[in-house]
Design a protein around this nucleic acid. Structure first.
Lengths: 268, 268
DNA sequence: CGTCGCTTTGATCATGATCAAGGGATGTGG
DNA sequence: CCACATCCCTTGATCATGATCAAAGCGACG
């Protein structure tokens, strides 16, 4: 990992848009986050960003590139818990523990904003609303894992794979990295197998069947979902869990009128 | 569901101890939460507390009794995502969405504090530190689901069941509802099967084998884990994920010395 | 005393794992 | 420019974990 001391502005615009979308931050609030003097860090493909068992003291807002979040099981190999996309935050769960419960590793060359957890926590005093929005966004992660849980626990291989691809499509669309029915990302069959708890040969088989049925096609890192509707129905995909309520909606329902933490940007 | 209009103090002491433990609230902060004028609600065994698809507008701090959090799958039956114990908060994930993603239903007669989400959110202005502690606690939920994910995705039936029982033991110990090796809770084999994505006859089989091996015994709602060490090793149980870092530790590492959140003393 | 829900047991079946081997690509060093 | 290594995809044969189906026993409770 190499910190880049000089160009601290370079990566902000893209990350800004993603933060806005994910955490409902107003531009003013986003600039509060960027005011925490984040470093831009670069990681090479394969580099570990968060290491299981070590203390996690910084959050990494992914600007560009992809990563995996995985857990090393004793004896068994590893279990990939999720794919980390631009706009996601590496370390957001690890920082809850004395020692990180899992690792995060760059899947491609990757660029991220690095912000010390302590500095974020201090927003509680200085900018409580910003802190709340960030924490609210973190809490929402559990919804994704709950969905993955029913994915792995209650669906067969075909449904799991279809569901996984549809989730990726939707999440990537949210950060403008996918069009209506396709996206590009360094997804191997081995990775899919690992995320979904399946074996590689079986993933291969199911993927071929899905292709024969004209539902999806995967070629050279590009996934095309030929019939989103049909696949969604087939595997029971409902995208609600990927569209959390904005915290703004909740706050604006409030009837009282206590002072805001930085007047002027209040959405009310 | 019946709101109890009169005795609003009755349930607080027990719930208070649990809140202290789970959210690192000081007594003063706990009383801020109780100052939100929560109602004590009673639910009968089998009653729905949160309904999938409906808007979730209140949080329910479980004081006494047990519940399940489950999802209705189309066509398929339901999938139980987790057991909800005293000290847990029903609705803590549902409130992130326009419509609750899952239901929560009382497994026994149950007593809970009901607090409107809006009122909690307003703590952001008045008591940002309390709000942060609560949200921090919610965010930590995702760690539990991530662990369940590797449980279901990467372990065989024996390991899953053992892991599940050890998690329950640990979580119940945290709220003084279990001793060193045993606890009581209305757990049926059907429920275990549903949580872990197994069939009832197979759960029965595995449970018998675990019993024959002298590892666990289940009788009349009482689970005894005869050899916690052996079982933990056998199934690879590490309890770290159930012991989140207190947010206090993070805040106290802060080098600056801003006044705390008491109204009137806050700068800015 | 009959019903209902939970547990137990057994027989059969299938989803998906494991093992094995070969086939492109791409990349690297000689 | 070729030899070799590596990584990923593909395919097939065999195996096993755990599902499904069926039926009966057993409390508890009204």
């Amino acid at each position: 990992m190499h910190a880049d001391p000089t160009p601290k502005e370079e990566g902000h615009p893209a990350a800004l848009a993603e933060m806005l979308a994910k955490f409902s931050l107003t531009p003013a609030e986003a600039s509060v986050v960027f005011g925490l003097q984040p470093d831009v860090h670069f990681f090479r493909s394969g580099e570990e960003m968060i290491v299981q068992g070590e203390r996690c003291q910084r959050l990494l807002v992914i600007i560009e590139g992809f990563a995996i979040r995985y857990r090393d099981l004793r004896g068994r190999r590893r279990h990939v818990l999720d794919i980390v996309l631009p706009g996601d935050i590496a370390g957001s769960s690890s920082c809850h523990f004395e020692n990180a419960l899992y690792s995060e590793k760059a899947l491609t060359d990757l660029r991220a904003l690095s912000i010390p957890v302590v500095r974020v926590m201090n927003l509680v005093h200085s900018r409580p609303q910003v802190a709340t929005k960030l924490l609210w966004g973190f809490a929402y992660e559990s919804a994704i894992y709950m969905e993955h849980l029913t994915d792995v626990g209650r669906r067969n291989a075909r449904e799991r794979i279809g569901h996984f691809l549809l989730e990726l499509l939707t999440r990537l669309q949210a950060v403008s990295l996918a069009d209506q029915q396709s996206f590009s990302l360094p997804l191997t069959q081995g990775l899919i197998a690992n995320v979904l708890g399946l074996s590689i040969p079986y993933v291969n088989l199911v993927l071929r069947k899905l292709h024969e049925d004209g539902l999806v096609s995967i070629n050279y890192q590009t996934v095309i979902i030929k019939d989103v509707e049909a696949l969604s129905t087939l595997v029971g995909f409902e995208r609600d869990y990927l569209k959390p309520l904005s915290i703004i909606d909740l706050l604006s329902e409030s009837t009282d009128d206590l002072p805001w933490d930085h007047p002027g940007t209040r959405p009310n």
